[in-house]
């Protein structure tokens, strides 16, 4: 069981959250011409690092906000959490 500190609600059980994937993936700019491969990479391809990973989590049974979580994928240690609009690093 993980405990995740929601920046809006405080420390909560993982049960209240839904995992939302890699938070470092950036959508291609609007109206920019991109290749099929770039689009394919944005939609489907993800890294699966061992160690620190910036993730999106949805506090779906709480404040219903998306947040960013910096977590170690091997130890599950959570280093920090951020509001969705916060810049990290």
């Amino acid at each position: 069981m993980l405990y995740i500190k929601c920046p809006h609600c405080g420390l909560r059980s993982q049960n209240e959250f839904a995992y939302g994937g890699d938070a470092s993936v950036k959508r291609p700019e609007l109206n920019k011409e991109i290749s099929d491969q770039e689009w394919d990479e944005f939609v489907y391809l993800r890294k699966s690092p061992r160690g620190k990973h910036l993730e999106l989590w949805h506090h779906v049974s709480g404040c219903r906000q998306w947040i960013k979580v910096l977590r170690d994928t091997s130890t599950h240690e959570i280093f920090n959490t951020y509001k969705s609009e916060e810049k990290v690093g």
Binding site: C9, S13, V60, S61
Partner: peptide, 21 residues
């Protein structure tokens, strides 16, 4: 999963009870 010992009068939490939001 909320720590109810920390919650007082006129406070509110959104959480789950047996899986129900």
């Amino acid at each position: 999963p909320i720590n109810f010992n920390d919650i007082n009068k006129n406070e509110v939490v959104n959480s789950i009870f047996n899986g129900i939001a």
